[in-house]
Amino acid sequence: MRLENVWLRYHRRGSWVLRGVDVQIGPGEVAVVLGRNGVGKSTLLQVAAGVLRPGRGRVVDRPARVGWVPERFPADQPFTVSRYLTGMARVAGLGRSAADEAVTTWTQRLGLGAFSSVRLPELSKGTAQKVGLAQAMLRRPGLLVLDEPWEGLDAATRDLVPGLIDEVLAAGGTVLVSDHRGETVRLPAARRWAVAAGSLTEETAPTDEAVAVVEVAVPAARVASTVARLRAEGHQILRVRADASTTAPQAHPSAPSSPSALDQPEGADAVEQAAGEAR
């Protein structure tokens, strides 16, 4: 997805909030949007999500499925949590049974099960924010846009957010996150976009650090999740191979003796898939 020379202002004679933003992000990448209050972080995210239309410039190659978690979930609606999420799943194009399944999955994962029959206006801010998170994930998004996703969440749910981001990235999606609480330290692999005075600059990480290669053996069934987690932690995945039994024990005598990928035929596909993603 690319933002090409994007300018935006809210009123015809108002000042420009975004000024000639040019930026590109690809599948499997996450970017954190940083900046002081009022510099245009949310505006940039809403342009990327398709909520706002640029006054000048354009957004190209935006993924078809976009999940947007607004900074404040609109809880002033006459629905229960379950009915709202089911409605949004149907709006997103899921069939009746798929919608019910998705709602059940995400209410459980986000700890919303006890609130299923509670009306949205009666929810606390943090619980309402979880509903906002759930509606964005009901149908796996190709682009997930999170505007201050940690705001108001309890510690347990805050810990869940990086995992959700990893899932989107592992499926080839793109994630944009804004944060002013410093929570994005949980996303060390993220690109860092700094917004100031309407312009965007990318903060680059130092590249002159010495690097070492560590070989790790994992059960085949966990290859994809491990690759995603290591990527999210900032590690570079060089390759994934299915012959760990020939080299791993020699290189790492203390490596766990869990079954290797070769010992689990059902894991061969996962290894192959992860290897393809690593390439």
């Binding site: 999500a49 909520v51 976009v66 947007w68 404040r72 609109p74 609606q77 997103a92």
Partner: peptide, 16 residues
């Protein structure tokens, strides 16, 4: 009746 942000969520989901 629909809050502005909910209308935008619908827009993101189904298109303008």
């Amino acid at each position: 009746i629909e809050p502005d942000v909910q209308r935008r969520l619908a827009q993101v989901t189904v298109g303008v």
